[in-house]
Design a protein around this nucleic acid. Sequence first.
DNA 1: CGGTAATAGTTGGTTTTGTAACTAACAAGG
DNA 2: CCTTGTTAGTTACAAAACCAACTATTACCG
Lengths: 151, 151
Amino acid sequence: MDENDDFVVQDFLPYLLNRAAEDSSLAFQTLYKGRYGMLRTEWRVLFHLGMYHRMTARDISTRAKIHKTKISRAVAKLSARRWVIRNRDEADRRSEHLELTPAGRSVYEDLREQAKIYDRRLTQEFSAGDVALLRRMLRQLASMETSVDPD
Amino acid sequence: MDENDDFVVQDFLPYLLNRAAEDSSLAFQTLYKGRYGMLRTEWRVLFHLGMYHRMTARDISTRAKIHKTKISRAVAKLSARRWVIRNRDEADRRSEHLELTPAGRSVYEDLREQAKIYDRRLTQEFSAGDVALLRRMLRQLASMETSVDPD
DNA sequence: CGGTAATAGTTGGTTTTGTAACTAACAAGG
DNA sequence: CCTTGTTAGTTACAAAACCAACTATTACCG
């Protein structure tokens, strides 16, 4: 237990990441919460459907690494609000395909626009190169693929 | 709502930050949970006391941006385990000064060592310069001061 | 086929968090 | 002093997350 070495827990990467994540998410959270009464998981499910147009709960679970129970409840709410439509797969009746309704899509479009603005505000104090590097490192830390694989 | 512009929500910084934070914290979380049955807030309180030796709940709240109810509960648990000692401030009997016991300090020392190792593992695939930049950017995004101000 | 295992999604019960109200102690102005 | 306001910390109740067991359906394999 060497007391006088260089590592300080305040620089511990998971700590810094969590702090940055919490703080940077806060204002945007109040936006989708206040404007649409959505929870974070609902917003995440919504934007995945906005991007990929047609996914099963399992697809979202795999891609976004969200547990299936959270997705199940999020989809239930989104579907009750008629923002998402569920279509049972007739070839495999266990799973169902999810899609945004036009109403759901307009919510998505709105929040996507807001996210874009918000993202710019967060990154404006950094150089474009630094921001690009930051995103690359974050993706790698999250063991996400850098490339966007098609369906 | 321009569909074919460049912004994709998957690059949304709060999303990337949250994913990286969750994934990078996971293994370490199982460590302090499994080894000491601690929650994240308890670990955070512990390491703040490990660094600063003597703080009030409010000090921790301010510095770590943790809500006072969470700290209250964390301190209650840490104190029940005799890892933290509470000393009421006789000049202002509302607040109490918190310190690690020897047992608490040895838990801290152990976890700090583990954190150091874990941090190295997380960052080893990046260059030292990139990691330094990453930490700087994360601190800035969390609106934390870069300098460590003394008590 | 028939039985066991695996998968998609849901539900229930327990923890954990978040929010608001609370107690106790101090501060400040009349 | 004594009312009003503020601060440190705790507690209670509601919302959300977590984990385990459950149903329904398909896959595998003797």
